[in-house]
C-alpha cells in the first residue's frame, strides 16, 4: 500500500491505495467520480479517457501511482455545475431547463460547448461512451480547432460507440469546433 494524492477536477484527493490500483479505479472508487466509465479495461474502447495535466490518457491503462501528484480532469470537470438536476430533464421541460443552446458556453456553470453540441446533434443514445468521447474530442479540438470530418474520425479512432454509428458524434464535434474556436487558446491551459 502507498499513500498518494491526485487533484481531480480541482479537488485534492489523498488515499492509501494498493499498488495495483488503476487510475480509473482511483477516479471511480476512491474519488467517486463515476462519470469516467469502465468499458473494456484493455485500452480499446476509450470510455475511460481523462486528461492528466491537460493530456488525454486511457485511465484503465495507467496505474494511479504512475501519475501521483498530478492533476486530472474528468467529464465532471467539463461543466463545473449542471444546469439543472437530472430528474428535471424531460423532453417536455428541456426548453425551460436549459438556456437556449446558442447561449451555452457563455458562463462558467453552462455546459461545455462539446456537451452542448452533443445534446443539440443527438450524438449519444445510451451514453456509455460519451464521457470518453467528450474528453478525447476536447483534447483534440484544443490542439486542432479547424479539423475536417476525416480528422475527427481519426481522433476518436480509439473510442468505440455501439449506438450512434459515429455520424452524429462527428456532427457534434464539427459544431463544437466552431463554438470552441474563439476560446480555444485560454482553454488549452486548463
Amino acid at each position: 500500500m502507498q499513500t498518494m494524492t491526485l487533484t481531480i477536477n480541482g479537488t485534492e484527493v489523498t488515499a492509501e491505495v494498493d499498488e495495483r490500483t488503476l487510475l480509473l479505479e482511483f477516479i471511480r472508487d476512491v474519488a467517486g467520480y463515476t462519470g469516467t466509465h469502465n468499458g473494456c479495461l484493455e485500452a480499446r474502447c476509450g470510455c475511460c479517457a481523462v486528461e492528466v495535466d491537460g493530456d488525454i490518457v486511457k485511465s484503465c491503462n495507467v496505474l494511479a501511482l504512475q501519475v501521483a501528484g498530478r492533476s486530472v480532469t474528468t467529464v465532471e470537470g467539463l461543466a463545473p455545475q449542471r444546469v439543472a438536476p437530472l430528474e428535471h430533464i424531460t423532453t417536455q421541460s428541456l426548453a425551460g431547463v436549459y438556456r437556449p443552446l446558442d447561449a451555452l458556453g457563455a458562463q462558467d456553470d453552462d455546459l461545455h460547448p462539446l456537451q452542448a453540441a452533443f445534446h443539440k446533434c443527438h450524438a449519444l443514445q445510451c451514453g456509455f461512451c460519451t464521457p470518453g468521447m467528450l474528453m478525447v474530442l476536447k483534447d483534440y479540438l484544443e490542439d486542432n480547432p479547424e479539423p475536417t470530418r476525416d480528422e475527427v474520425r481519426k481522433a476518436i479512432g480509439g473510442n468505440i460507440c455501439r449506438c450512434t454509428g459515429y455520424q452524429h458524434i462527428v456532427d457534434a464535434a464539427m459544431e463544437a469546433a466552431e463554438n470552441m474556436r474563439p476560446v480555444a487558446a485560454p482553454a488549452a491551459d486548463g
Binding site: 488525454i56 486511457k58 491503462n61 478525447v136 481522433a155 479512432g157 480509439g158
Partner: peptide, 9 residues
C-alpha cells in the same frame, strides 16, 4: 500509431 490517448503515455 495506436490512438491519441495511448500516444500520450
Amino acid at each position: 500509431l495506436a490512438d491519441r490517448p495511448v500516444r500520450t503515455m
